[in-house]
């Protein structure tokens, strides 16, 4: 059929998506950095999962992080399961789906780890598990981790990543903030070091408790760190807020974070900080 013979009005022409288009382009060939907008060839993204242009660290699971964050680790309290305190419709199912997907029992992996000769208690929050939200099991695991660290006189390194409270667990989620804070206070009173690594995103009740209670607070480049969500802030003040308001770099300017550290430098930096600031304190 010749072109000019076609019925060529837009309304008559049925534009159909090429159903095979998706399979023609390999899935995930490109990745767009949500911070600087750079389009990155997936092959260029190494184990650290950072943007080569602005060094932003993509959201990664706890297991992915542990491949490079420490030398050795052991996983503890990995069998605790939330008892669904509000009997929230569909929540148990959601938990099971997340557990299957991540291989974790809840949104944090805790245990003991080492970098070279430095031994410490640690927690890594997993933003892929219900947005790293703070549920009762998350709170219990972090509390036990601090209690063990206090008893064994170990420093703590905690990588935070959280959308905040676990809505499906209601007030019990809020109470985790107080419970963990008490455990942090005991650990601190024992003269032990607590290092926080803020990763993207750290918000809400996690920012308003243990993420901001460290002796040393470092953050990954451009990690979003804040209390309220962008939409809530904009609705409250009835105006747009600066794009970088909750960037870790902006929090450094305002005095709430000690240093920005790139993922590839993190292990070495943590080692130096652990060496300087604590480690097993045998003097008692």
């Amino acid at each position: 059929m010749k072109l000019y013979e076609q019925d060529n009005t837009l309304s008559a022409q049925h534009v159909k998506a090429d159903k095979q288009a998706d399979s023609k382009v390999p899935n995930g060939l490109w990745r767009k950095c949500p911070k600087c907008g750079a389009t990155v060839l997936s092959k260029q993204i190494d184990q650290y999962a950072t943007c080569p242009s602005c060094h932003y660290g993509f959201r990664i699971s706890a297991h992915q992080r542990l491949k490079w964050a420490v030398d050795h680790f052991s996983d503890l309290d990995e069998r605790l399961i939330s008892d669904d305190p509000l009997s929230f419709p569909g929540y148990k199912k959601k938990l099971v789906a997340c557990q299957t997907k991540t291989g974790l029992n809840d949104s944090v992996l805790t245990g003991e780890a080492s970098i070279k000769d430095m031994h410490f208690a640690f927690g890594v929050m997993d933003p892929t598990f219900i947005m790293g939200s703070l549920g009762t099991v998350t709170g219990e695991k972090i509390t036990r981790m601090f209690e063990r660290a206090t008893a064994q006189r170990l420093p703590v390194v905690l990588w935070t990543a959280s959308g905040g409270a676990r809505m499906q667990e209601g007030i019990m989620s809020l109470m985790q903030m107080a419970k963990i804070s008490n455990a942090v206070a005991q650990h601190s009173a024992a003269g032990l070091l607590y290092i926080v690594v803020l990763t993207d995103p750290t918000t809400g009740g996690v920012t308003a408790s243990f993420a901001m209670q460290g002796d040393i607070t470092i953050a990954e480049p451009h990690a979003l760190v804040g209390f309220a969500g962008r939409r809530v802030i904009e609705q409250t003040i009835q105006q747009k807020i600066p794009k970088d308001l909750q960037d870790a770099e902006n929090l450094v300017k305002h005095g709430f974070i000690d240093r920005i550290v790139r993922r590839e430098d993190e292990k070495a930096e943590l080692y130096r900080l652990l060496k300087l600031g604590g480690g097993r304190n045998d003097e008692e």
């Binding site: 804070s181 920012t207 308003a208 408790s209 243990f210 993420a211 901001m212 209670q213 760190v225 804040g226 209390f227 309220a228 802030i233 807020i241 308001l245 909750q246 902006n250 305002h254 005095g255 709430f256």
Partner: peptide
């Protein structure tokens, strides 16, 4: 946010 709401509560 700039004055550290999270940090103040923490």
């Amino acid at each position: 946010e700039e004055d550290g709401q999270g940090a103040a509560i923490a």
